[in-house]
């Protein structure tokens, strides 16, 4: 990574914030903090998408994830009254096997990616324009686009049925 380039400084700052925030997500004893730190991680990923010239995806992540999904999470946390504040029963007792698996996964994934891609640059080429994404979705990927609407409809109807309080009979 060449630190003479301004973009790399941005990347470094965003990346460190994301890793730190995601570590809080998985270790925090406070469910509310965990959910809010997920906002920071996802916000960081949106910033990375801007760096990569994917402004539309960045916008969708901010609107859908941070705007809707996280709000849903916060509702879930509050409605189910998962111990907000300090809870002792949120984690398994022994973190080391999980940590070993996670570190091994990271070593394998990151090591093999660095070994293969080396210092291949991503910023040499023109970014995709948002209109290209639109054309692509409504042309080549129109079938999954229609299918995903059924996924959302099924999730909506089914979730209402499961979550609603049944009328007494």
């Amino acid at each position: 990574m060449d630190l003479g380039v301004a973009q790399n400084w941005f990347f470094l700052v965003i990346g460190l914030v994301m890793v730190a925030a995601s570590l809080v997500v998985v270790t925090s004893r406070n469910v509310m903090h965990a959910a809010l730190m997920l906002v920071a991680t996802l916000g960081g990923s949106a910033a990375l998408f801007v760096l990569l010239g994917a402004e539309f995806v960045a916008g969708v992540v901010v609107l859908v994830y941070i705007g809707a999904v996280i709000v849903l999470f916060l509702f879930g946390v509050m409605i189910t009254r998962v111990e907000i504040g300090r809870g002792s029963s949120l984690d398994h007792a022994n973190p080391w096997p999980a940590a070993a698996i996670a570190i091994a996964t990271f070593a394998v994934l990151a090591g093999s990616a660095v070994a293969f891609f080396g210092d291949a640059e991503v910023d040499g080429v023109a970014a995709v324009r948002t209109s290209d994404i639109g054309t692509s979705i409504f042309d080549r990927f129109v079938v999954p686009f229609e299918v995903v609407s059924f996924v959302l409809l099924a999730a909506l109807i089914g979730s209402i049925v499961l979550a609603r309080k049944d009328p007494e009979s």
Binding site: F141, V143, P144, V147, V148, V151, G158, S159, V161, L162
Partner: peptide, 29 residues
Amino acid sequence: LGGMVMASSRDLISLFVGLELVSGPAFLL
């Protein structure tokens, strides 16, 4: 319907979205 879409899918996006249409309703059911 998700299974039927998967059977015709010849790219990763259709395959993934079809699979999610199979599993999403199944979780609920």
